[in-house]
Design a protein around this nucleic acid. Structure first.
Lengths: 334, 334
DNA sequence: TTGAAAGCGCTAACAC
DNA sequence: GTGTTAGCGCTTTCAA
């Protein structure tokens, strides 16, 4: 029932190693024997078995995808989109992708199973991940690609977002709409990308000779959700900061701001304009719909797979960074 | 560098087979030797390798997920949600999910690689799939679970949607809103689920003594998209069929109907009401937002994994069918 | 209860 | 070019 390489060799009248050579196109097999082997393979419907091959080649044919638990369980569409992007691209590279999540507080005993079992040839990590997991991967000599995160130390391959340009587009857009008094609501200040967005806001306002005072920037929260946005917005509003536009570090925050403004009976965009970042579902389901920066999430996943595949093949060098552009999507909130 | 079972045996001072017994808790190992082995494992950070184990046990630890190409490349959120549901659930069953897509016109040479490589222990198939792939899976003796599809012949395990009850809820809702003249716009009549929705419409209207004439039912298209909905709606409108409400077989169709009504300057829901089915993104991004039937997509994926895991373990019998309930979500379109 | 040894199906030296 | 053979790391008889 179970057809093996041995049977193929027997029916083709050659040695197993010859079959193996044909299978792996290592050349140096005569046209004639190759034909015989190919015929036998065809006839027997033979296909090499992954685990047997993997045992000796030390290649699994799988890529690992690691996401922190909160990113996934929030069902954050941001990272799931990225994940689907990797799934899609992986197929054309003949890889399968194994997904796992890890806790932010990483310990020895929570090492992803696919690493322990040597069941992946490379790893993609999306969003903030504990530094320890990176060491863990390096120890095993596995190539890896980060997405939307870059740790404080070390030189990693990564797919990053052009955060500064995104904020520039948002601010420029608001200025064109006549706004002069902007405030910024940031998120998790541990995340480098979030810091980039905040810093860009500061810098770009300065470039335009607009008030970029620290009191116009609220970016010290630990989370980056709607609740934080809501509270930050009330904070600005209650303290009488002069403002006509909010620049939010992401769409969730922006939707929180939206709610705060509604609570205060402010009209959007007449009284106050709001911009988000990421262009996730929230942006389009919000009322009014949210002007935001479109981040090509699926594409980032695809790029990560492509880069990782090259890293594994040795045709790209570790430390390669790819920055993807973002695009302003004007909607009702401005 | 690479710690194997042999080293564990050596440092524990026992035989390799003993370590294996401990690893697989096959019992009949004395407390004392078990301790020694466990200590050695701990000390060496040993973990069995998947491919080596798989080679002998014939278990890969993976589940396959098969989706038709059109379902996936349309980036149909319906099936991607289901897929994410399987990913989520698989983790708690210690399985990884391998995704692949197949063409609707299935041939010998397009058999999913994970089947050829014996790289999965069971298979989940979502949406319409060619019957040949099912034979192909059966030949290999792999358990499988279908989602949202049931082939004309054969007895399969499946996760199905309570389509009839969904249509009942939609119709009842419309009747409560005062509608008496309903029409139905169906989709791909090859799909059993789509047929169920159509048949339920016919039956439920009859139960309420409403006109369920064939001219009120448009369900002969080959696709189930917005374009089909648009054309069907125009067809009804142009032929002067008396109607105040459309019941669509899914949200995409409903959004097409919506557009047709807008083109004809009909007010929604004042002049005409519309209901969808599935509750995908479209339903909430449409203007006005769409009253629809919420289908628990992630949950269906999770149920499929749970059932498949039981099938593999032998603790459930092939042919088990699970019907998931749907829930009406009233929005602006009614 | 434990150990020795035979494979699982494949690749890769190394001979011929 | 092609065949022989030794493993890859594990599980599983079968003896002891």
């Amino acid at each position: 029932m179970n057809v093996t390489i041995r049977e193929v060799a027997r029916t083709a009248g050659v040695a197993v190693s010859t079959v193996s050579l044909v299978l792996n196109r290592k050349g140096r097999v005569s046209r004639e024997t190759e034909r015989k082997v190919l015929d036998a393979i065809e006839k027997l419907h033979y296909h090499p078995q992954r685990s047997a091959r993997g045992l000796v080649t030390r290649h699994s044919g799988n890529l690992g995808f690691i996401l922190s638990t909160d990113h996934f369980s929030n069902a954050e569409p941001f990272y799931t989109k990225i994940f689907l992007g990797t799934e899609f691209e992986a197929r054309s590279h003949d890889y399968y992708v194994l997904l796992t999540t890890i806790e932010q507080q990483f310990s020895e005993k929570s090492i992803p199973r696919f690493l322990l079992e040597k069941n992946v040839d490379g790893v993609i990590l999306a969003g903030t991940v504990p530094p320890k997991i990176l060491e863990c991967i390096k120890e095993r000599g596995l190539p890896c690609v980060l997405i939307d995160y870059f740790p404080p130390a070390g030189n990693y391959s990564a797919i990053l977002i052009d955060n500064a340009d995104g904020i520039r587009q948002a601010v420029t857009h608001l200025i064109e709409k006549g706004h002069r008094d902007l405030v910024f609501v940031g998120g998790d200040s541990q995340h480098p990308g979030m810091r980039e967005r905040r810093d860009a806001f500061r810098r770009i306002l300065a470039e335009h000779d607009l008030d970029a005072d620290e009191r116009r920037i609220c970016a010290d929260s630990l989370a980056s959700g709607a609740q934080e946005g809501y509270e930050a917005a009330l904070h600005f509003l209650n303290n009488g900061v002069k403002l006509t536009a909010f620049v939010a570090a992401n769409d969730a925050i922006a939707s929180g701001i939206l709610r705060a403004c509604r609570d205060r009976k402010l009209r959007i965009p007449e009284d106050v304009a709001i911009t988000g970042f990421d262009d996730v579902e929230t942006a389009i389901t919000a009322r009014p719909t949210l002007t935001t920066l479109h981040v090509p999430k699926e594409e980032m996943g695809a790029l990560a797979v492509r880069l990782l595949a090259q890293l594994i093949a040795g045709s790209a060098s570790a430390g390669t960074k790819i920055v993807v552009p973002v695009q302003l999507v004007p909607r009702e909130s401005t």
